[in-house]
Amino acid sequence: MASIKNFPKEEYVLKGHAACPGCPITIALRTALKALGNDVTLIVPASCSAVVQSLVPKTSFNVPVLNIAFAASASAASGVAAALKRLGKKTIPVVWAGDGGSYDIGIQALSGALERREDFIYVCYNNQMYSNTGIQRSGATPYGAWTTTTWTGKKEMQKELAEIVMAHHIPYVATASIAYLDDLYEKMKKAKEMEGPRYIEIFSPCPPGWRFDMSKTVEIARLAVQTGSWVLYEAINGKIEFTSYSKMLLKGRERKPIEDWLRMQGRFRHLTEEDIKRIKEAIDEKWKYYMQIYNKD
């Protein structure tokens, strides 16, 4: 098991970038690039990450980056992968996209690339809304959450992109969180050693978008896992294994009350008792299902 004490000391995200204070993207990217090394090409669609790089002619990412249109990240990665193969290079194309560019706008290109068995890693950092354009709802926004386009709270449940991706039967699918960086590091390392399409989704709480204090980014990400609202697992060739804290939950450790997590975020401030009950029921239902299917040994 990887430990943060053994992480490489090299930094591929340079100081003085354009991210907001307390941004989860750079926490995730720092660790991801520590695991992958610098022999990668990042493909970044329209997203906060395109802005975080800072302004031309300077960039804060110390690896090659291809900035591309919103819907085109996975198709661009397919092209980059083909070019690298033709040149005989071992460089890994890595898509670094947000949930808007993955769940909604980029899903067609993503599904196509997965089905074609393109050789690349797709990373979706999920902050459950379009933060770069000003906090609009996305397919990943959870039930009840305030955004600027759902200002009385979202009325629908979010979809599960990792499960949609798994339906493509690709070699590696994993979910991670910025609070469990040793787990994220390990998953990145595993993905690096594999071939074919690989998908990793990273849970990333956004301080301005979710309306919480910027010092609580990691705490909220951790509570999301401990309350069972976000689940850490990996699927190697379709075989699902829970990892890290979620594995302990699966083995019977009690989940923390979801109210603790909801109360920390301004986007859930307006929730009624009934809304909270509905969220709770959805999580209970989800875990009941997991217990039946995955808690075998």
Binding site: L14, H17, A18, Q53, S54, P57, K58, T59, S60, F61
Partner: peptide, 12 residues
């Protein structure tokens, strides 16, 4: 084309 530099947004 941009090139990697520390302090892309100045002294943050």
């Amino acid at each position: 084309i941009s090139y990697p530099t520390e302090g892309g947004m100045g002294k943050t």
